[in-house]
Simulated assay, not measured.
Amino acid sequence: MGVEDGIRGFAGQQDGLVTRAQARQAGLSRHDVDNLVSSGRWRLVARAVYLTDARDRGAVSRRCRVRAAVLSLGPHARLVFDTAAELHGIAGLPRSDEIHVGLPGRHARIARVSDPAVVLHQLEHPPGSVLSVAGIPATVPLRTVADVILRVPRFPAVCVLDSALNQRLITDDDLRVVGALLRGRRGAVAARRYLAQADGRAQSPLETRARLRCVDGRVPPDVLQLAVRDVDGYLLGIGDLGWRRARVIAEADGRGPHDTPRAIFADRQRQNRLVGAGYTVLRFTWSDTLSPDYIPYTVRAAIAAARVR
Rank of each mutant, 00 (worst) to 15 (best):
V231Y: 10
W243E: 03
C214G: 06
R211S: 05
V275D: 08
A164E: 02
A196S: 15
A252T: 02
C214A: 12
V223C: 12
G239D: 12
R244I: 13
V189P: 01
V189A: 15
L169D: 01
L165S: 10
A188I: 00
G187M: 09
I249C: 08
I170Q: 05
F265K: 15
W243F: 13
L182M: 05
D199A: 10
L236F: 01
T289H: 02
C214D: 06
R229I: 14
E207C: 02
G254A: 00
V228S: 12
V189G: 10
D267F: 13
A188W: 00
G217L: 07
D230V: 05
L182E: 02
R213I: 03
G217W: 08
R183Q: 14
S287R: 15
G254L: 01
Y194E: 10
G179D: 12
L290W: 01
R273S: 12
A266F: 00
L195Q: 03
G237P: 12
V228Q: 11
W286H: 13
T285L: 13
T260F: 03
D199K: 12
L182S: 04
A191T: 07
A202P: 07
Q225N: 05
V275F: 09
T260A: 06
R193W: 01
D162H: 04
D174T: 05
S287F: 07
V160T: 09
R283L: 11
R186F: 06
Y194M: 12
T171W: 03
G200K: 11
D216G: 11
D172H: 14
V189Q: 13
I238A: 05
R176C: 13
A227M: 10
W243V: 05
D240G: 08
P257T: 01
A202Y: 04
F284C: 01
S291I: 06
L182T: 01
E207L: 02
R211P: 04
A188P: 00
L226F: 04
R262Y: 06
D222Y: 08
V178E: 03
L206R: 06
V231I: 12
L274N: 09
R185N: 04
L161Q: 06
A202C: 15
A210D: 00
A263S: 13
A190G: 07
A180Y: 08
D173V: 14
A191N: 07
R268M: 12
R176W: 14
L169T: 02
L235K: 06
Q225A: 08
G276D: 09
H258G: 03
S204E: 01
T280D: 09
D232R: 15
A252Q: 00
R209W: 14
A250Y: 04
P257W: 10
G237L: 13
L236K: 01
G217C: 08
L165I: 09
R201T: 02
R218K: 14
P257H: 11
G179S: 13
Y194I: 07
G242R: 04
D174P: 05
